[in-house]
Structures are given as structure tokens and as C-alpha cells.
Simulated scan of single mutants.
Amino acid sequence: MSDAPNREPDRGIRSERPEEAGDPWTRLPSMAPATPSAATPARTGQAGAPTASRGGTAPVPGRVRTLTDPAAAGPVPPGGRTVAPSPLDPGATRDPHGIHRALREEYPLTYDPLLRAWVLSRYADVAAALTDERFTHGHRPGDPPCARAHVDVDVEALRSVTERTAYVLARRLAERPQADLVADFCHWLPAGTVAAAVGVPYRDMMRLVRGRAAGALAGECGGQIAVREKALASFLGNVLDDPGQVAALRDAPAGLVARAWTESLRRDPPVQIAVRRTSAEVPVSGGIVPAGASVALLVGSAGRDPERFREPDRFDPFRDDPGQLTYGPGFCPAVLLAGFEAEYALRALFTAMPRLRLADGFRPTATGLITRAPRSLIVRPGG
């Protein structure tokens, strides 16, 4: 790793267009409004009641957007809206949680013409769809295929290069009066660990990342740098935003840091929406998703489902109901790297800057529709 890399332009989340969002395991359909195909409608029970529901109690008839006939929806209102709120509604980039809450509670299965997909928002449905073989065309690092694809990975070597890279970056910030951890740390650490792991000079690696060639060097999963960058920014934002968490995690053992990392992935996943396609009919909350349909999985909504998580909006590394959907449970270098980056980011930053804190008056603000993270984390290295 070069001792003083030239500053690259900030590449925070600048565009909300899905094709520019930088997410490697989400491919959204065209954004043009559409209605579901008449040949593959979602099915509901008798008199419009859903065939599946939450907690064994059917929602109020008419509150779930599951159409037996696309024409029954009537004309699409101006702006391409359905009755249900859309994850792409204006304002969702700053605060999607109200929309997610309405979808979970009232519209667990709805067709969104902006996404051109059926939308699932409850934890049970999203978690199942991410691994159910009836949902195709998707892959997360750590999914079962990873365990078969990744071989000859030197875990201790990955740990070593991550630790070294984190400490070099942290020391460069220690003497500054103010720094932006997103631009000056989170932006560089994931690329730096991949560069060191594959033996590519750091400056060359940054150019290769811009050219979307990182995957060719480090494999499909290891090259997913943008997702790890956003996840790390959210993690550091969650920790630094609460002085109590800073005190608890400053000298915490690796196990507690890992729990805090999992908690951040749950509460603020870097990938908010993943798209899959069904190969068969699938019963879900609110109805049955037809075969051959595009389905938008609201990972961000699932992580805050109160049916699965106690006080879901709270960042709590000590919770007794942990879980996250960003990564699968299988072995994968990208999952290892992400965890190592979170652990050594904290250790390096607190070692180099024992009094590190957010700048006066600054609060982390996440933005983004498809991928989501703070654009900046302004800190005072000297306290």
C-alpha cells in the first residue's frame, strides 16, 4: 500500500438511479410504470382475503394490494402510484422507514409499477426469498454457492492486511483538526485490503475499481467494494453517534465488535432493495407471488420488522435477538473482509485517536434508495 495515495474524488452515493447505485447483487428492472401481467396475477383467497397472513390473522380485506385481475386496480394515479406507498416515493431517500412500516403493516404483498415488481417487506418473507430456490437470479456473499466456490483462502493473511491497512489510514488522520471518515477512511479501507490481498499497488487498485475490474482481480464477492464501504460508513456512524457505544466498544473484545457489526447490518443494511425472480408460485404474507414475476425484497424494511426484532429502530449490540440479511451464513472472503474491516477500523481509529468524536453539531445522515449509507462522517480526531 502506498504511503500517501493521492486523494480520489468523493464517491459517496450521488445518484439514486439503480443502474448507477453500485450494488453488485441487485439488478432492478426498468423504472417505467407497469402493471402485473394478466397471465401471472397474484392470487388471493375467497372474497379477496389473503391466502397467507401474519401471525395467523388475515389483514383487513382490501388493505393488501394482491390483485386477482390487473384491471381490478383501476387506472394508475398520476405519477404511476399504486394504493400502497412505494419505496421510490419522493422523500424515501432521506427517510424510508415510514414507507417500510406502512408496507409491512398494511401491504405485505403489493405490486409497485415504479419498481415493476411485487414487493415483500416483512422479515419472514424477505429472509425466505433470499435463499428459497423458487427465487432465482440473485447472489449474496455468503450464500450457499460461496462455500463451494471459494477455496485456498488464507484467513490470517486477510486479517493481517486488513489490520495493517486500517492502522496506516488511521494514523494519517490523527493529526488533523477535522476529518471526514467516509471520504478519508471508509472510502479507502475496503479497496486497500483487496489491493494488499491480491498484491496490486494501491493506486493502481483505485483505478481498477473505477474501471469495475476489482472483481476480476479478487473474485466476484471480494470485488464488491462499494457495498463494504457503505456498510462500514453506517457502522462507524452508529457507533460514534452514541457516546455510550463508543465507551463500550473502545476496548471491546472481538466478539462484541462482531455483534455490533451484525447489529449495524441489521439496522442500516448497505443494500436496501434486492430483486429476485420467481420460478414457481410462492405463498407469502398477503397472498401468492406468481411464477415468473420480478420481486423486490426490501432488506431495509425486513431489518426493522418489530415481529422479528425488539425495538427495531434502536442500535443495540447487546440485543438478544440478533440477525442480518446483507450477507449469507456460508464461508466467503467478502464476508470475512467486511467483518475484519469493521473490527480493525474501530481498533485503529481508537488507538490512533483515543479522543475521537463527531464534530460539534454533526449527526450522521444516511441517504439512498437502492444502497444506503451516510455521505459523510465529520469527526474531531483530537476530541
Rank of each mutant, 00 (worst) to 15 (best):
A183I: 09
S376F: 01
P5L: 14
G62D: 09
A233I: 07
A71Y: 03
L173A: 06
T351R: 12
A366V: 11
R250E: 15
A334C: 13
D125A: 01
A92G: 02
F135N: 14
L103I: 03
L256R: 15
D95G: 08
E133S: 14
P306N: 06
R43N: 08
G237A: 05
A233T: 07
Q324I: 10
L217E: 02
R134S: 05
V257R: 07
V168Y: 01
I13E: 01
E106T: 13
T193S: 14
N238K: 08
L114S: 13
L377I: 10
G55M: 13
T193H: 02
D321N: 13
V182P: 00
T351A: 15
R259G: 06
L337P: 00
G56C: 12
L249A: 15
P61N: 10
D95I: 06
P354N: 05
A39D: 14
R122L: 08
H187R: 13
E105C: 02
P36A: 09
V379S: 07
L208G: 05
A149Q: 04
A195W: 00
P333Y: 09
Y327P: 07
A117H: 06
I13L: 13
A352N: 05
P70T: 12
D268F: 07
P61Q: 14
P190S: 04
R304I: 03
